[in-house]
Amino acid sequence: MDDSIKSVIDNATLKMDAAIEHLKSALLKIRAGKASPDMLDSVRVDYYGTPTPVAQVAKVSAMDARTITVTPWEKNMIPAIEKAIRDANLGFNPGSDGEMVRVPIPSLTEDRRKTLVKQAKAEGEDTKVSIRSTRKDANNSLKQLQKDGESEDAIKGAETQVQDLTNSYSKKVDDMLKEKEGQIMTI
């Protein structure tokens, strides 16, 4: 295989891998009823006038399956952390004991579970769109290589490889979504 064709396929693989990694991180943020420090990744605390991720001003950990604890490095940050968690619109109601902020994770209602499944599916569809876009870019690059003198057979073989990559990554997305839906719908 020509180096330029291999480069196009390798680049497409890298971009599709990145799309899958993005989906993994997005699915981690969708809670499945079990406490996880990742649930607070989107929370930004007002740290002396600067919106700062909560993990940079405190230790975030899961105390048990139903509680996240946030232990700030500076005790005076407790009210700001509580306010940031409430304002993040995650459906959590934090409370503090003067030492740390405890965030009880409420049980999911059936409606909330369905909403979370829709959210996960939307993330999956965005990932599939990204994968198909990568396929389109790769195929356009291959067509350009053909115009630049690459053999038609080599290009057709490469396009088949790109389509096989697309199919395999789309299947990974479907498998990840199925697993996440199972986690969310399990009571």
Rank of each mutant, 00 (worst) to 15 (best):
M1V: 13
D2K: 13
D2S: 14
K6M: 06
K6A: 14
S7E: 07
N11C: 04
A12Q: 10
K15W: 04
M16C: 08
D17T: 06
A18T: 10
I20Y: 04
I20Q: 07
I20D: 01
E21C: 03
E21M: 04
K24A: 12
S25A: 13
L27A: 09
K29E: 06
K29V: 00
R31C: 02
P37M: 00
V43K: 01
R44Q: 15
R44W: 11
V45A: 02
Y47L: 11
T50I: 14
A55L: 12
A55Y: 13
Q56Y: 08
A62K: 14
M63N: 11
A65S: 12
T67E: 01
I68T: 00
V70P: 11
V70M: 10
V70A: 07
T71W: 04
P72R: 01
W73F: 11
W73R: 03
N76S: 13
I78N: 11
I81P: 14
E82T: 02
N89P: 09
G91T: 12
G95M: 09
S96R: 01
S96G: 12
G98W: 06
E99L: 08
M100R: 11
V101Q: 02
P104Y: 13
E110A: 11
D111L: 10
R112V: 09
R112E: 10
R112P: 02
R113Q: 07
V117K: 03
K121D: 07
A122V: 07
E123H: 14
D126L: 09
D126Q: 14
D126W: 03
T127M: 04
R132C: 02
R132G: 04
K136I: 06
N140W: 08
L145Q: 01
E150R: 05
S151Q: 00
S151D: 04
D153C: 06
I155S: 00
E159Q: 03
V162C: 08
Q163H: 10
N167M: 07
Y169I: 05
Y169E: 01
S170T: 15
K171F: 09
K172R: 15
V173I: 03
D174Y: 05
D175S: 12
K180N: 06
E181V: 00
G182D: 15
I184V: 11
T186L: 15
I187E: 15
